[in-house]
Write a protein that binds this DNA or RNA. Structure first.
Lengths: 164, 164
DNA sequence: TATTGTTATACTCTATAACTATA
DNA sequence: TATAGTTATAGAGTATAACAATA
């Protein structure tokens, strides 16, 4: 168990990390705010799902999820098909357009981080990813990921660049 | 230099960490939003300063800083004295009331984190703090901290608990 | 003319509550 | 009656731009 002062320091780091998030947010396409990006990312990683499940993964209220989804759907990035098993629900699915948008997001984010973290080793970045993943998990975040989330590099999607 | 896929993964972790920040935000006193808390924290850590300097440290526009400061000042947590050297400026200073508020914030944050991160070792928390600090620094964050920020435990303020 | 700070306005993200449709 | 999802409303955080006072 860590000390109190360390927890306070961690709390401040979490608060201050907002600056980095804002920098990342600034490079997003004008019509794709962070909320939409998160929706696309989770649909890509976890596959088709219903609103409720997506809200869980996003860790926000379903009303918020509904707005983000509506935004993405309006731009053709995702489709909402009626759930045959429950007519109250809708199944969300990433479209080819959504996948393309995701590629663009990945490209921009990776580019900015590669630039800013040029002097970081592969291992250091991996360490940070691992600790942040665990931090989220420790906060009752069952939304972390499906299987194999510790090795994102192993995943093979359009987001995995062909080469460096 | 890390791989592209790793940067994309890091970007997603940064996006998802918002859930943890929201949890921390929920335990704040009703009249002390995160913006005010950040102001108090920085004044405590860096000492008296002007608006411009605080805006730099917060990494937000000065208009935003002005609002947060006004909120804190209205509650007596900080004082704005005229700068004798430049009549356009105001010197911000933490009041005893602000210090007390900061103690309460520290107490609540530490308590929540201690609860959630009960199975983390002192070293793991330290690692995360170190990597997050460096991440902010890599993003041109000269606002990181003054001296000794790698050893927050060594600082002796009211925020450093007397014991565990 | 440039800079410090404040205020007005607008946009994003979030939560709560009221509502519809279905289970 | 309970649940899935939507919409209305409100609050916090942020940025841009217009403005005031001073340098």
């Amino acid at each position: 168990m860590a000390e109190q002062a360390q927890f306070w320091e961690l709390a401040r780091q979490l608060s201050a990390i907002g600056a980095v998030k804002r920098d990342l947010g600034r490079i997003l396409p004008a019509d794709c705010p962070a909320g939409s990006a998160a929706v696309l990312t989770l649909l890509d990683r976890h596959g088709d799902m219903r609103m409720g499940r997506l809200a869980e993964l996003l860790a926000v209220d379903m009303s918020v999820t509904s707005r983000h989804v509506a935004h993405a759907a309006a731009r053709g990035w995702i489709e909402r098909s009626p759930d045959p098993a429950d007519k109250r629900s809708r199944i969300l699915r990433l479209t080819p357009g959504g996948l393309a948008q995701l590629d663009e997001l990945s490209r921009r984010s990776s580019h900015l981080l590669a630039e800013r973290l040029a002097d970081w080793s592969d291992d250091e970045v991996g360490q940070l990813i691992r600790l942040m993943t665990r931090l989220r998990a420790s906060f009752g975040d069952c939304r972390s990921a499906p299987a194999g989330f510790h090795d994102p590099v192993l995943r093979e999607t359009t987001r995995t660049p062909a080469s460096t």
